[in-house]
């Protein structure tokens, strides 16, 4: 059981790390603000997986579940606020190109 858990943990961590890389790739190379938000969401997915694995391997699934539920609530609020900011930016510029967001420099 313990060995099995260990492999399961290693494999999950590898996939979570790959997912984080994918998300970072999305955040760093995208020009569209909405796409950057999608990248952030993907990163949160990887983190959710890590939390679940942490609870599963240590046998504290109930604790991990309550963490995940809290995390999801927070995630929704952040995405709603972020969507508000994106729409606000769009109202000003009629564009969502991240590279045009360069009036702040230094």
């Amino acid at each position: 059981m313990s060995g099995d858990m260990s492999t399961f943990f290693s494999i999950s961590v590898i996939f979570a790390v790959l997912m984080v890389f994918t998300a970072l790739y999305c955040i760093l190379t995208s020009r569209n603000l909405i796409r950057i938000l999608i990248g952030l969401e993907l990163m949160t997915k990887a983190v959710t997986l890590l939390l679940a694995v942490g609870g599963y391997v240590s046998g504290r699934m109930a604790l991990a579940q309550s963490f995940i539920i809290t995390l999801i609530v927070i995630e929704v609020v952040i995405i709603a606020v972020a969507a508000g900011i994106v729409i606000g930016t769009y109202r000003h510029t009629n564009d969502l190109d991240a590279r045009k967001l360069n009036s702040l420099k230094g």
């Binding site: 943990f9 961590v13 979570a16 984080v20 955040i27 603000l33 950057i36 952030l40 990163m43 949160t44 990887a46 983190v47 890590l50 939390l51 694995v53 942490g54 609870g55 391997v57 240590s58 504290r60 604790l63 991990a64 963490f67 995390l71 952040i78 606020v81 972020a82 900011i85 994106v86 606000g88 930016t89 000003h92 967001l101 009036s103 702040l104």
Partner: peptide, 29 residues
């Protein structure tokens, strides 16, 4: 400008909290 500054803060802050949460997951393991 404020919306732009907020967006930068939000993205970096989300990355930071993702890092903190991953640490929580690993420590829990």
């Amino acid at each position: 400008d404020a919306l732009e500054g907020t967006f930068k803060y939000l993205v970096l802050s989300a990355v930071a909290t993702a890092m903190i949460l991953s640490a929580i997951g690993l420590l829990m393991t």
